[in-house]
Amino acid sequence: MAFVEQLISNLLYGAILGSVYGLATMGLSLIFGVLRIVNVGHGAFIMVGAFIAYWMFILYGIPPLISLFLAIAVGMAIGLAIYMLVVKRLVDAPELASLLAMFAIGIFIEEFAKQIWGADYVGYSWEIGGVSMLFTEVPFTKLLAFASSIVIAAVVYVWFRKTKIGKAVRAVVEDREGATTCGIDVSRIYALSFSLGIGLTVLSGVLVTLFTPVGINVYMGGEYTLKAFVIAVLGGLASPWGAFYAGFIFGLIENGSYTLLGLIPGVEPFGLTRFLSSVVLMLVLLVKPTGLLGGE
């Protein structure tokens, strides 16, 4: 009985965590989908979002939900600046060049952040209580992270489907040359998508702190970069929606498998859950190289 109860609790937490992971991967997939640029500096932008949430709360008592708006604005501004200064010149360069540039940008952001914020591990306490559900306790902050992820993903989805510019972005993802001949200003779409991708990533940093409000540090991003890449591949890499769903699946696998792996004697099940997600990634690629939810 305890086994089932724990499995259910873990799946519940896995779903919440997965929604945050999913949102934290959408920006990566968007940028790759439109510009074919692999943002290896992804985690640095999540870190920026986490610090925005932290400072707004500590300095002005502003709850993270409000900081979301600031985060996306700041993120889009940073994204646009990076696009204008660097990425613009690299769109047609080999993959490797843009990959390296994003790596350097990521390092620069982290080191710059360290100069102004220090290398301390910080956190904040936004105490709004919690609720007992499905054999475990869930704080409202985590539920809010869950709900906001879904709402934000839905808003982005609608924006892509219903607005003219959103449709233009999708057209570029489908077929770059075709979009150009249809009269779409591709360079404007690039700038917008890059900036929006970074904006979403910074915003997801705020949600990350809603789930884990402690351990905020300038180097915290590396962990999320790795996870985001795995999730992005699971989700088909070029598809932000695929990424969002894949985030869920990833969260469920990571937390859910813990209880099962715990049945093996003499191992560390938590470590093995990480191994398992790599195996799942490999298996998915073996069976369906376009990703679990690819081809959208």
Partner: peptide
């Protein structure tokens, strides 16, 4: 007695067991 990997962002699987 259980361990968690470095960089973990959610310890709830272990802690649910611990509680029991």
């Amino acid at each position: 007695e259980k361990t968690y990997p470095a960089g973990a962002t959610d310890l709830s699987p272990i802690l649910n067991e611990l509680k029991a």
